[in-house]
C-alpha cells in the first residue's frame, strides 16, 4: 500500500521564481491496484512521481510505501528504489551498456545481488517484457527498433522486482501497433507480479480500459480521486482543466448536449455504440 499524506513541494523556495509544484497532496493506493494518473504537462505529475521513489523530498508531508516512511531523514535510498521502480518518459534514452543483458542487469547489480541472482532476474525481466533472453541478451541495445529499446529499458526497472512499478507515459511517440503491444506487456507484468502499477498517460482510453483507480492532478493539487467511472463522469470539470473523458464518451456527451436522448455514458467504444444503437433503434 502507498499512503501519501499532505505532501507539498516548492521549487526555488525563497527566490523570485518560486513555484509550488505540489500543494498538500494526499491519497492512498491499495495493494494490487492499477492506478492511472492524469493531468497535463506542468501539472505537477512528474514532481509527484519523483517523490514516490525518493528522487525528490517533499518540503512537508509523508509518503509511506508499505510500512516504510520514505520521506524520513536518513532513509535507505537503495531500499526505496528496490521497492519502487520508476520508468521515465522515453526510457530508451537511458540505455548505455554494450549488451541488452548487461543493461538490464544494471539495476539488480546496484542492489548488491549475487551474480547468479542478477542473471536469473535479467532473464526473467526480459521474458516479462516479451523479449527472448537468448536471442536479445547478447545484442547491442542500440541496434534494436524503437519499440524493442523501450521494452529493454522497462525490463531494466522490472528486473529490480519493485513492489510498485511507475511508468511515465510509457507509450509516448510509439506507433499504434507498438503502443498496443507495450500496454499489453504492462498489463501482463501487473497480472504476473501482483504489484501496484501506476500509469501516467494522456491517453484517456488507455486509462479507462486499464486502471481501477484514477488520480487527477491540476496545478499541483489533487483534484479528483476515484474509479474511472467516477472520474470520467465529471467530464465537465475535466474539460475546464483542459483534460477530457475517453473519445467515445466525449462523443456521447456531445450528442447528449445537442439533444440526442443518450442515457448512460460508457467509456469504451463498444459500450458507446450500444447506447447509440438504443437511440437509433427506438
Amino acid at each position: 500500500m502507498i499512503k501519501v499524506s499532505n505532501i507539498t513541494h516548492v521549487y526555488s523556495k525563497g527566490l523570485p521564481d518560486e513555484s509550488v509544484a505540489l500543494d498538500d497532496v494526499s491519497f492512498t493506493i491499495e495493494d494490487g491496484s492499477f492506478t492511472g494518473i492524469i493531468g497535463h504537462t506542468g501539472s505537477g505529475k512528474s514532481t509527484l512521481l519523483q517523490h514516490l521513489n525518493g528522487l525528490l523530498k517533499p518540503d512537508s508531508g509523508h509518503i509511506f510505501v508499505g510500512d516504510t516512511d520514505i520521506t524520513e531523514k536518513g532513509s535507505n535510498l537503495l531500499e526505496i528504489r528496490r521497492k519502487v521502480g520508476l520508468v521515465f518518459q522515453y526510457p530508451e534514452y537511458q540505455l548505455f551498456e554494450e549488451t541488452v543483458a548487461m543493461d538490464v542487469a544494471f539495476g539488480p547489480k546496484n542492489l548488491g545481488l549475487s551474480d547468479e541472482e542478477v542473471r536469473a532476474r535479467t532473464v526473467e525481466a526480459l521474458e516479462l517484457v516479451g523479449l527472448d533472453a537468448e536471442e536479445f541478451g547478447g545484442k547491442s541495445p542500440f541496434e534494436l527498433s524503437g519499440g524493442q529499446k523501450r521494452r529493454v529499458a522497462i525490463a531494466g526497472v522490472v528486473a529490480m522486482r519493485p513492489e510498485v512499478l511507475i511508468l511515465d507515459e510509457p507509450t509516448a511517440g510509439l506507433d499504434p501497433k507498438t503502443h498496443k503491444d507495450v500496454l499489453g506487456m504492462i498489463n501482463d507484468i501487473h497480472e504476473k507480479q501482483h504489484n501496484i502499477t501506476i500509469l501516467v498517460s494522456h491517453n484517456m482510453s488507455d486509462v479507462a480500459a486499464m486502471c481501477d483507480h484514477v488520480l487527477v492532478i491540476n496545478k499541483g493539487k489533487l483534484v479528483m480521486d476515484g474509479t474511472p467511472e467516477e472520474v470520467f463522469g465529471r467530464a465537465d470539470e475535466l474539460n475546464e482543466m483542459g483534460l477530457s473523458a475517453p473519445p467515445a464518451a466525449e462523443f456521447l456527451r456531445r450528442l447528449k448536449a445537442s439533444g440526442v436522448p443518450i442515457g448512460r455514458i460508457p467509456l469504451d467504444v463498444a459500450g458507446a455504440a450500444d447506447e447509440i444503437i438504443k437511440v437509433l433503434g427506438r
Partner: peptide, 27 residues
C-alpha cells in the same frame, strides 16, 4: 533526466572512491 533515471535504477553518484565515482559516470 538521465541522472535521475539511473538513480531510479539504484545508481549511486555520491559515495565511493574517486576512481569508483568516475566509473559511475559511465551510465
Amino acid at each position: 533526466k538521465i541522472m535521475k533515471a539511473q538513480q531510479a535504477r539504484g545508481a549511486d553518484f555520491e559515495t565511493g572512491s574517486l576512481v569508483k565515482r568516475a566509473k559511475n559516470l559511465i551510465p
